[in-house]
Nucleic acid binder design. Structure first.
Lengths: 256, 256
DNA sequence: ACAAAAGTGTTACTTTTACACCCATGA
DNA sequence: TCATGGGTGTAAAAGTAACACTTTTGT
């Protein structure tokens, strides 16, 4: 028997939400020097999915995305960026949902709202990995991080959405506080470099990277040092938010 | 008495289109060395509006935008780029539409679909000015070009949409064939420069601009020359499409 | 004492900037 | 012939790329 929350959504969602519109979020985190994405394991299927949801009749679309985000991560302050609408009529697969819900004991009529065509608004979010408490939604049996270089099969066009988000991340690197939102408050230069390398999927020269980042004057070097590593202890930095914001306005003229 | 096309839209639109979703297009053209936007004069109101429309139940969203575009301009091949969703619940003003339609002799019920909240998908389009045959839609009494520096009062949040499109245009300048789509096939260097200056709202050095553009190798200089001007005849250029496309893929590393 | 990570410095090369000069054209 | 727009050149400054060397740390 399907849980009540799922039945509720299925049978009263039509009036509760704007029809034909959904939201999908690509939530990025950074951990172990790797870029991670928060994914959900769909119940009764081998596919995974992006965190998503619907929009309340009087809800700001950005607000709806925030709601989805906070339901999956437990976080309230989240860097969120709309990046593209996916509107092909065949992007939704009625068979998929019908199959999945049948196994939950829920039979949908042909004209059920969930089986209709959905236009989805893609958001990407940047969160600090260690603050996140992943929580599955009622379609899913599990929620957690996956390495961006090791993504399982995703349902529908979620793979395309993810790729598109990654591409957007590259373009936004010089214009949005991406480092700030993905890294912990204090971090080392090699960490920041690794983040840039991962997003750009490109090796960067250690020394030139450092010099360039420093030249932007968006970092404050702390007295402290990262201990515990097996080698020379790197300095810790934190973002100088005031300068960072100012610099991002015109873009960090970076040919990376 | 309202024309039939308008009555049709008003009274059968609910079932004919996806609900709560619309499309708004910012159509750019370039003429007289100025950037122009195609606007519609709303009937019975002082405000103007962006060309817009709705999405058919089984229509690709991009396709719907193309349809709107071609209805307003008469063009079929159009450079079209989705750029943002506008989803604040209060962005639509039920009073506005009710007033306007009342003057057309159409009384709408409180729960009429047109008075509901709409999420709109913003597109910008680039067209070759001289090919366009502006045609008003059933909400409008006139359709035509307005200088981007001299925009009249726009309805709802259309001003914000336009500004956002302009900003996107700036960001896309190095990544999309903006010059190619806005200029006629043959054009002069000063024309291209003026286009860049307008989009960036910034003066550029004539000589450095020329050198930089040339260095991209995306232009072919023709033997011909633009005659009729009051001064030295400038060379004509055309884009070398093959190289242009290739160069845009990695972006024209331009600090303009 | 050594391997590996991290800090710092130098030099050649490319790109950007800020200019000056000459040419063609219509009034 | 002159004012104006347009083509071309050059030198200084800034930024980028490609390097080597030293310091620190755990084993």
């Amino acid at each position: 028997m399907a849980p009540k929350s799922l039945r509720n959504l299925i049978f009263s969602g039509e009036s509760a939400y704007l029809s034909s519109l959904s939201i999908d979020c690509v939530i990025f985190g950074f951990h172990d020097n790797q870029l991670k994405v928060l994914l959900l394991k769909v119940k009764n299927a081998k596919e995974w999915s992006l965190p998503g949801g619907f929009i309340l009749p009087d809800e700001d679309v950005d607000e709806a995305a925030k709601r989805v985000l906070s339901e999956r991560t437990g976080l309230s302050k989240i860097f969120l960026q709309q990046f593209r609408v996916f509107g092909r009529p065949d992007r939704t697969d009625p068979g998929f949902h019908r199959q999945f819900l049948k196994k939950e004991g829920l039979i949908l009529k042909d004209d059920h709202w969930l089986l209709k065509r959905f236009v989805t608004i893609g958001y990407y979010a940047l969160v600090e990995y260690s603050f996140v408490n992943p929580a599955p939604d009622s379609f899913s049996e599990w929620c957690g991080w996956k390495d961006v270089n090791n993504i399982p099969d995703l349902m529908m066009d979620h793979r395309e959405i993810l790729e598109s988000a990654l591409h957007t991340l590259q373009l936004h690197l010089n214009y949005h506080p991406i480092g700030y939102n993905l890294l912990p408050e204090k971090f080392t230069m090699p960490q920041l470099q690794k983040l840039y390398e991962t997003i750009l999927s490109k090796k960067l020269d250690r020394r030139n990277f450092q010099r360039k980042i420093i030249s932007y004057k968006i970092l404050k070097r702390l007295k402290e040092v990262k201990t515990g590593g097996a080698h020379k202890a790197p300095y810790l930095y934190r973002f100088d938010l005031k300068n960072y914001r100012k610099a991002l306005k015109n873009g960090l003229h970076g040919g990376w």
